[in-house]
């Protein structure tokens, strides 16, 4: 798959100027000037997760520039990205590359292109706990992740050390803002649902 010839004509502008191409869509969502990337490679050079990537960060940027939606959204690298934003820091054109990666991750998830499912499972587990307790709850996240991923023994060897150092509280911490955090999640879910309805409505027209 990796050596298949890409047809670049999909990049041709459509007659309907209101329909943005993939590159313009990513640019709008991330609010980043994707077209100013001149492929110096500094993002890839600084990336601490680059060793695990199937497509390097600069290549993902390149794929977006060339409107290669499939190639960009099916990259495993999107899910392996740590979000450390070293790429954004290093970019000579001041592109927030980490934000572009984040945007692509969202788009990929909307299209059900989750190429490294365990990463998504981990995040969901983390967010579930956050929503429930208003704070990170390590053991809860761990248990949910183990159940979701069926990796029942993963990282168990770290537990005794973490417990001894009091890094792994047995009970969740609670705090006064707990309900407010929960409302953030509710509002987000509502707005997602609304935009989905809008989209369906416009596609019917």
């Amino acid at each position: 798959m990796m050596n298949k010839t890409l047809c670049l004509n999909s990049a041709l502008p459509t007659k309907d100027s209101n329909a943005p191409n993939f590159s313009q869509k990513v640019a709008a969502l991330s609010q980043q000037a994707i077209h100013t990337c001149y492929q110096c490679g500094n993002c890839s050079a600084g990336c601490p997760a680059a060793f695990a990537y199937d497509l390097q960060v600069n290549q993902i940027m390149r794929a977006v520039q060339l409107n290669q939606e499939d190639l960009a959204l099916s990259a495993k690298s999107l899910w392996l990205c740590l979000g450390c934003a070293t790429c954004s820091l290093r970019c000579p054109n001041a592109i927030d590359v980490a934000r572009v990666m984040e945007t692509l991750r969202h788009l990929a998830r909307q299209q059900n292109k989750i190429t490294v499912p365990v990463v998504e499972k981990f995040w969901l587990s983390f967010l579930n706990c956050l929503r429930a307790f208003g704070r990170s709850y390590e053991i809860g996240t761990m248990v949910l992740y183990m159940l979701r991923s069926l990796r029942l023994t993963t990282d168990l060897d770290l537990a005794p050390q973490a417990l001894a150092k009091a890094k792994l509280g047995l009970l969740p911490h609670t705090h006064a803002g707990r309900a407010a955090v929960g409302r953030i999640f509710t509002r987000f879910a509502e707005s997602e649902a609304q935009s989905k309805r809008d989209k369906e409505a416009s596609s019917c027209n």
Binding site: T5, C7, Q39
Partner: peptide, 15 residues
């Protein structure tokens, strides 16, 4: 037109 995008590491084709 057959060519190569060496930045992407992929052969490319343009009509």
């Amino acid at each position: 037109v057959l060519g190569m995008d060496t930045l992407l590491g992929r052969p490319v084709e343009i009509k």
